[in-house]
Design a protein around this nucleic acid. Sequence first.
DNA 1: CGCTCCATTGATTAACTTCAACAACAGTGG
DNA 2: CCACTGTTGTTGAAGTTAATCAATGGAGCG
Lengths: 250, 250
Amino acid sequence: MLATYPNSSAADVLGRPPDYAGALGIGGAGPVVISPLVRPDRKGLLDTMLPSSAVQRTPRDAEIIAQDATADCCLQVVEGCVRTVRLLADGRRQVGDFLFAGDVVGWEAEGRHEFAVEAVTAVAWRRVKLATIESWAAHDAAFARRLRAYAAAQMRQGHDRLVVLGRKTAIERIASFLKDMKQRLRAADHAVLELPMNRCDIADYLGLTVETVCRGLTELRSQGIISVDRCRIVIRDQSALIAADSSPLH
Amino acid sequence: MLATYPNSSAADVLGRPPDYAGALGIGGAGPVVISPLVRPDRKGLLDTMLPSSAVQRTPRDAEIIAQDATADCCLQVVEGCVRTVRLLADGRRQVGDFLFAGDVVGWEAEGRHEFAVEAVTAVAWRRVKLATIESWAAHDAAFARRLRAYAAAQMRQGHDRLVVLGRKTAIERIASFLKDMKQRLRAADHAVLELPMNRCDIADYLGLTVETVCRGLTELRSQGIISVDRCRIVIRDQSALIAADSSPLH
DNA sequence: CGCTCCATTGATTAACTTCAACAACAGTGG
DNA sequence: CCACTGTTGTTGAAGTTAATCAATGGAGCG
């Protein structure tokens, strides 16, 4: 499989030039599988403000917004994956969310960004002033409506996370994570996940330790539910994965 | 202290008639301290739609919105305290949030309410159609702006919860809860909390068991940080409580 | 008064973390 | 090209936290 996008929605919506993948060093030469880091539910939130800011690039693991930085702007991910991170005084770390192309991060801040924003992969992004968002929302009813829908979707996702962190076991958290990432990475067709984040990020996202994440993946593998090869996860039994997630009463 | 409101903002903003406390059975005769269940940051969100729906009353512990109910409307709390609850198939329970007078709950739903809404105390509330909110937001820019601000505040609070559930110890969760409740119940002056919810609700809110919540409260009491008498918590050492919460790096 | 529900405490168990070691892999420089 | 090195992922053993199981006491209520 070549380094192309399974579908062109992100590029179309964002007006992204076709050479971005190469420019980011994500693609490169040779037959490399590229993760389709696109959120279908969130694409195009900021289409209308596209001309207002230039795309910037940040290498892997670099900080884009510092924790507790003054919040006068937020950012939209154009390509790649970012994480939001809060660090406690004693070094404990919580990953708030992983965000992909099309996602907007930090727009809900007031005063300060309570979470840092860091690049998981090499990332292309554009800066958006909070005042600009407010202004657009005030003058463009359609944009305001999309922003509301986006906020509501993020809140629903946050509520799901509360259940995962508050009440699920390690295995269930990991199964839940894989299920969610499968959806967010649009791996519906082949069920092969190229996870952009490492075990440490996953652990801090799920409120676990690296070791527990490893053991959980091993357990799921030994049950024949997934295959694991570093960042490449193959979901071999989707229904068993869903069962392992222990979903809410329906 | 008589059964009066420490300040009149809720009644003023919501246009609530003066006899509500009595009608709800919350006040009653005698020198009872009434918890001022008002969120200063959230009051008045739905002022403008006040005339559109009548206030309804629900007794303690009754369900107002069922889990997975079709989401055509949400509700605003007029008086009392409600909780959002998600039940897993095996009986595990997660309390999403506690909401007080002025708060709007369920507006972020799409399709179905993924959390049930239940009365913690006797509650007065009014039903609001989601379509009405959308319509108001579309036609009233000021309301839309308040709704955005409200959503952003809820999201920030949700992010804080992620850290609490993902990375904090039992004691820290409990200290964090008390600190938060002190703020939300407006107990700043006397530092006496009349918690409307029982230990089970607190446990399911914090991702702990009832026993662990009890032991945590006992521990904080034995350190002289609080006094505990059933639902009445007195914060004796605010700074020690904050220290026990282990706040983020600043 | 007796009942139920809730809060609390004690004893034991289970789950996850911590500590430790090692293997696999990527990057670097000779 | 290959040795060297640092990082990341994985596994094992021991330790800790919180859950589970169990029992008691007290408040509220019919």
